[in-house]
C-alpha cells in the first residue's frame, strides 16, 4: 500500500505589497508550504502503508521538504504552476498521486487559503474524503480519523482508499535538522510534466483585476488609553453587549 502526501508551495501573503489602487506586488520571492501541510505529512507518516509515504507536489513545491520529513520518495509536476483555481491544482495533484502508485490514503493540508484543493483531489481520484481531520490511526485495516465539528470532537472509521484533508492544531514543533536534510537529498525524486500525466496544459488562473476592499468597517478608538477605553465602553453599551 502506498500513501501519498500532496502539498503546494506558494507566496507568503505576508510578503505581499498592496498599493493604494489594489495592485499587488511581491518584493520578496519567499515561498512557503501551506500552514497545514506539516500536519498533513505527519498524519501520512503515522498511517503510512507498507510502501511508505510519497511526497507529491507541483511547480515551485520543494521535494526535499517532504523527504526531510520521512517521505521515502517524491514526485514533482514541474511545469504545473499554482494558480487560484483549486480544482485545477487538485487535478494535477490527483494525477501525480495516481502515477506515484497511491492506492490507499492521500493526505492533503486542508488549508484556509485553498479549501478546495483536497476536495478536488478526491473528486479527481473518485475517492471519498474526510476534511478537517486533526489526527488519524489505523485500526484493523480501517483509518480512524478525529476532527472538530461545531464544538464536537468526532471520530470516524473509514475503509480506504480515502483522501484526508488535515487541519493543523499546532505549529510544527521540530523542523528537520541538517542530518535529515542531507538524508533527503539521497532519496529519489521523479520530475514529470503535465503532458506525461495525460493532462491538458492550462494557464494558471489569476484575477483580471485586484482592488482594495472598501474602507475597513472597524471603528478605531485611539489616543489616550483612558479616553479610548471610555469611548469603547460607550460604544459597546450602545450595541447592547457590555
Amino acid at each position: 500500500m502506498t500513501t501519498a502526501a500532496a502539498y503546494t508551495w506558494s507566496r507568503d501573503p505576508g510578503s505581499a505589497h498592496v498599493s493604494a489602487d489594489g495592485t499587488v506586488t511581491w518584493p520578496a520571492a519567499k515561498l512557503t508550504p501551506g500552514e497545514d501541510d506539516h500536519a498533513a505529512l505527519a498524519v501520512a507518516v503515522a498511517i503510512g502503508g507498507s510502501e511508505g509515504v510519497v511526497g507529491v507536489t507541483l511547480g515551485a513545491g520543494d521535494a526535499s521538504w517532504a523527504l526531510a520529513r520521512k517521505a521515502t520518495r517524491a514526485i514533482v509536476v514541474s511545469d504545473a504552476p499554482l494558480g487560484d483555481d483549486d480544482a485545477a491544482t487538485g487535478a494535477v495533484l490527483a494525477a501525480a498521486a495516481r502515477r506515484a502508485g497511491a492506492d490507499d490514503v492521500v493526505v492533503v493540508g486542508d488549508s484556509e487559503a485553498h479549501p478546495g484543493v483536497a476536495p478536488a483531489v478526491a473528486g479527481h481520484l473518485g475517492w471519498p474524503i474526510m476534511l478537517g481531520v486533526t489526527s488519524a490511526q489505523r485500526i484493523d485495516g480501517r483509518v480512524h480519523v478525529t476532527r472538530q465539528v461545531a464544538g464536537v470532537e468526532e471520530t470516524v472509521a473509514i475503509t480506504p482508499p480515502v483522501v484526508l484533508g488535515v487541519t493543523a492544531v499546532s505549529v510544527e514543533r521540530s523542523a528537520p535538522g541538517m542530518k535529515e536534510m542531507l538524508a533527503a537529498r539521497k532519496r529519489p525524486v521523479e520530475k514529470v510534466t503535465v503532458a506525461e500525466l495525460g493532462l491538458e496544459q492550462r494557464a494558471a488562473l489569476h484575477p483580471t483585476t485586484t482592488r482594495c476592499p472598501e474602507a475597513t468597517r472597524a471603528r478605531i478608538f485611539d489616543g489616550d488609553p483612558d479616553r479610548a477605553a471610555a469611548d469603547l465602553v460607550a460604544f459597546l453599551r450602545s450595541e447592547g453587549v457590555a
Binding site: 487538485g90 485553498h114 479549501p115 483536497a118 476536495p119 478536488a120 478526491a122 473528486g123 474526510m130 484533508g165
Partner: peptide, 23 residues
C-alpha cells in the same frame, strides 16, 4: 460555505464538470 462536508461535495462536482473552484 466552508462546511467540510459541503466542500467535499463541491470538489466532486468540480471534477465531474471540469469546472474551476474558487474559495
Amino acid at each position: 460555505s466552508g462546511a467540510p462536508a459541503s466542500r467535499a461535495v463541491l470538489g466532486a462536482v468540480a471534477a465531474r464538470c471540469s469546472a474551476p473552484l474558487l474559495p
